[in-house]
Amino acid sequence: MRPFSYVSAPDVATALRAVADDPGAKFLGGGTNLVDLMRAGIEQPDTVVDITSLPLAEIGERPDGGVRIGALVRNSRLAAHPLIRARYPVLSQAVLAGASAQLRNMATVGGNLLQRTRCPYFYDRTAACNKREPGSGCGAIGGFNRGHAVLGVSGACIAAHPSDMCVALAALDAVVEVESVRGVRRVPMASFHRPPGETPHVETDLSPDELVTAVELPPSPTAANSRYRKVRDRASYAFALVSVAAALEVRDGTVTGVGLALGGVATTPWRARRAEHALLGAPATEESFRRAAEAELAPATGLPGNAFKIEMARRAVTATLRRLLTEGSPA
């Protein structure tokens, strides 16, 4: 690993100042992604600003009935928290579906939002990758792309976003709170991650000196009836081929509320707006679910290695909604 200097920030202001004054500096949270990327030589910060001592590890109820999650809350604590389990079960399930218990004990909510793709060409420094080295090409498009995206792709990049947690946050309309020396701002999940376009190395709406400080979950009666379904090559400890985060509210046989997002199939945590639009006000039937899934996947573009994901995603959406309708939430 390339040597770096290390600073442990005692408070948020010190952390923000340290990164604002040093373009080669990066924040370090749980380290489960950044340390790995540094060891692989993909990230090479001059200075590492350790933020794990900052007071950002609380989960609390907001006056409006929503929940505020500090950016340094560990994934395992988030999944186990009584408020999350009861009111946002899809989020508990999504977090528990990701990584391993050891990693969840280390990884933070803020770091999960910022984790980088697991595309093998991104990790292989001898391969072409526009995300790692802009302008160098994409090894995945004509290569091994079984794990890659079919939605939100560009001619420059088809890397899938790896997070499970973010898929649930997208379905729940979460808002990310970020802070820099210029102040605090709030970014909706829908605009936090950026599709690759011609600049796949730009992955989020964050400036390099901005720190994720919290995630806010709005109050939602729909969220209590929610679940996460993950389809993968082995039963545990694998990234998603397809995942679905769904929240569903049905009254008198009609869909009155829905939040839907997809993982494993897109370059960003994919909010399924087309499907939501098709579902709202529709009868809560298998046929409506299937039609909504088809609407969402209509713009998908598959390659020989990953086209199977399109039908897999349609089926996963339909099955997740069906299960919510018949069995309710896992809470």
Binding site: S76, A79, A80, P82, R85, A86, P89, S92, Q93, L96, A97, A99, S100, A101, Q102, L103, A235, S236, Y237, P330, A331
Partner: peptide
């Protein structure tokens, strides 16, 4: 703490079945 195979997230103390052990030890 629940796991990815725990049926009811809010239930007190899921039984430590073989499925639970396998899921919880998958790392």
């Amino acid at each position: 703490m629940p796991s990815a195979v725990t049926e009811h997230l809010c239930a007190d103390g899921a039984e430590l079945t073989d499925d639970e052990i396998r899921e919880r030890m998958s790392g």
